[in-house]
Nucleic acid binder design. Structure first.
Lengths: 206, 206
DNA sequence: TTAAAAAGTCGAACGCGGTCGATTTTCACA
DNA sequence: TGTGAAAATCGACCGCGTTCGACTTTTTAA
């Protein structure tokens, strides 16, 4: 049986996370102060620091839950028979729609995931692993169906696609894309480019 | 002739930038407080806010100078006759070596450039334009030499390569790469992948 | 020349994330 | 069951970026 300490610890962690979910969702991450968060969780401000090292660590824990949910939803709706580019397109667009629902939320998450601080490297890799796993599953099937080269390192292929997603996300935050249609067609174009290669084809000429 | 106000304005802007260059270079961005910066520039702390809206705006102005210098250096040493992948590799590795010289400096810059805040979108696009221009020059020549498809939008090709650079930079901050050799070979592998395409070649079979 | 408007300046203060140190609660063990 | 060690808690506090409001300097226009 677990000790009093362990029970309380779990209880308080839950209280903090629930307060975070409520407040971050309602008024946003940056608009929520640690003071408020603590009050909502029914503890003192500095007590939080016994559970999380920084505010952004709480944010990432919050994101982990949300993102799990989105991935589950996406994988439920994903069509394993669809062509590779379409499956990846659907995966990334699902994520995109989700993280950009609240403008600042997506930026913060993307920042921590792509260029994490020392303290958040671990969590960031954890979350990134969700992306990689989702991609691996798709890529495996694509290799089996002869849609994808089998002489490449899976990590580099997954990374390649992931990089294009990040590019589109970045372009959105830089307002290079305005509408969802632009996003969709831009992403599709990049994915197709990656598949076909940038080198001229020597189909007819050679 | 310019008014007293305009002269003073220029003078103070210069003073702030010089203080920023000195202090950021010496002790780093985060270790330099606005208080110090103001003292070094010989003005009051809140006066700075008449010249820059935020601390990170000063940082980006500082970066702009530095990055210009690095690009100039790189373009001076660049060999216009080298193969496309090698030229791009050299360009990105030069940037990489520079921005990761100070660990946190690179992360901050990359964060602001890839996922800028509202206030820094403009500056971020300005700096990104340097990358695009440098790439365009290389890509133009590659198209002329038949190394690169000419049926693609240049922005998307440049973006594609840029995305792979960001990926490598990100992987470095996530400690997926440890040594400079890993970085170099990783980047090269990704660039080659992009050139060749991820789809199986139907050279012999079809 | 002058006086009202506009722009620039800066000390004081605010709100925030995070730390410290004294106090209380829990644990391990006799 | 008692006791010293370890862990948890929280109010007070720190340093920071940024804002405010009163004051000074410069411009504009009659």
């Amino acid at each position: 049986m677990q000790s009093i300490r362990e029970k309380k610890k779990k209880q308080t962690t839950r209280a903090i996370m629930e307060a975070a979910i409520a407040l971050f969702s309602e008024k946003g991450y940056e608009q929520t102060s640690m003071e408020e968060l603590a009050r909502a969780a029914g503890i003192g401000k500095s007590t939080i620091y016994g559970y999380f090292r920084t505010k952004s660590e709480i944010f990432l824990a919050f994101c982990e839950d949300e993102i799990d949910f989105v991935f589950a939803e996406l994988s439920r709706r994903s069509d394993p028979g669809a062509p590779l580019v379409e499956r990846i397109h659907a995966l990334f667009m699902g994520q995109f729609r989700y993280v950009t629902r609240h403008h600042d939320f997506g930026r913060l998450l993307a920042r921590e995931m792509v260029f994490p601080k020392e303290l958040t490297v671990e969590k960031s890799k954890d979350i990134q692993q969700r992306y990689l796993s989702a991609l691996y599953e798709i890529l495996d099937r694509a290799v089996a169906h002869g849609e994808l080269r089998n002489d490449l390192e899976p990590l580099f292929v997954a990374g390649h696609f992931y990089a294009l997603y990040i590019l589109v996300l970045s372009a959105w935050y830089e307002r290079r894309f305005e509408t969802m249609e632009e996003i969709e067609s831009g992403l599709k174009r990049l994915l197709t480019q990656a598949m076909e290669g940038l080198r001229p084809h020597r189909s007819a000429s050679e």
